[in-house]
Design a protein around this nucleic acid. Structure first.
Lengths: 129, 129
DNA sequence: CGGGATCCAAGCAGATACTG
DNA sequence: CAGTATCTGCTTGGATCCCG
C-alpha cells in the first residue's frame, strides 16, 4: 500500500503506484495505440483506411483506441457530413512528438529481433524435454 | 536502421499481422516490463528488492515478467544457494540497450503529463452532463 | 527467500446487430 | 461509412498454498 506521507511526490518516479505518469505509460504502451499512431503517419487517414493499415485490429478496438487518443489530445477527429459519411484522423502536434520515442522502440525491436528469437529458442530448448 | 527499398518500408512494417517485430513490441510494451527494466538500473537487484521498487506489482506478475525477460535474453538471473536463498537479477548488454528507448518514452510521459490531463478533462466535460 | 501451481474474479476483446 | 451497444468467451492477474 501507498504510505500517504506529507512528503510531496516527486514527478519522475514511475515506479511509485501513485505516479500519474504510469497511467500515461499504460495508455501509450498499449498494443493498438502504438500501431495506430504509427499508421496515422503525417496525413489525414480515414477510419476504413486505418483499419486496413493496422492489420488485425477489430472495428471495436480501433474505435476505442482512437477515442482514447482523441481524449488525450493526441489525435484530431474531423467529420465530413457527406453521404456516405467520411471521418478523418490526424495526429495533433502533441501526437507527432510521440512518434519519436515510439519509433525508437520500433527500431529497437527490429534491431534485436534476431537476438531475442535466438535467445528464446535456446531458453526453451534447455528447459523443455 | 533498416534499409528501405523505394517508398514503402520492407522489414519494418509492424502493421502487418505476421510481422514478428509486433510480438516484440507487445512484450516490451508491457506495463510491468517497462517498469522492471527501469527498476533494474545498473546493478544486481534481488527479487524482494525489485518487488519493493516496482510498487504495485504482484509476486506472480514480477516472476512472469522476469522469466519473460530472461527468456528474451534481456535479463540475467543469478542464484546464490545460501540459506535463505538469494537471487539477483541484472540487465544483459542487450537489456541495457533497451533502456534508452524506454527512457525516451518515460520522459515523453512526464513532459506531456499536464497537457494530456488537461485534454482529458476538457474532453470529458464537453461530453458528459 | 524465491517461485511454481491452482483457483477464481474481473476486465478485455471479438462477433453481431442496429443507427445516422 | 462510421460508430454504438450488447452479449459472451477468454485471457489476465490477484490471492493463496505449498515446496526447495
Amino acid at each position: 500500500m501507498v504510505t500517504t506521507s506529507s512528503e510531496s511526490v516527486v514527478v519522475g518516479s514511475p515506479y511509485r503506484a501513485d505516479c500519474p505518469s504510469r497511467r500515461i505509460l499504460d495508455r501509450i504502451g498499449d498494443r493498438w495505440t502504438v500501431l495506430t499512431v504509427g499508421a496515422l503517419g503525417d496525413g489525414n487517414v480515414r477510419f476504413s483506411e486505418l483499419r486496413r493499415r493496422v492489420e488485425g485490429v477489430s472495428h471495436k478496438m480501433l474505435t476505442q483506441t482512437l477515442r482514447a487518443l482523441e481524449r488525450d489530445g493526441l489525435v484530431r477527429r474531423t467529420v465530413y457530413p457527406e453521404v456516405p459519411i467520411r471521418v478523418e484522423y490526424t495526429l495533433t502536434e502533441a501526437g507527432r512528438t510521440l512518434r519519436e520515442p515510439l519509433r525508437a522502440l520500433e527500431e529497437w525491436s527490429i534491431t534485436h529481433l534476431h537476438d531475442v528469437s535466438t535467445s528464446q529458442e535456446t531458453y526453451d530448448r534447455t528447459r523443455s524435454s
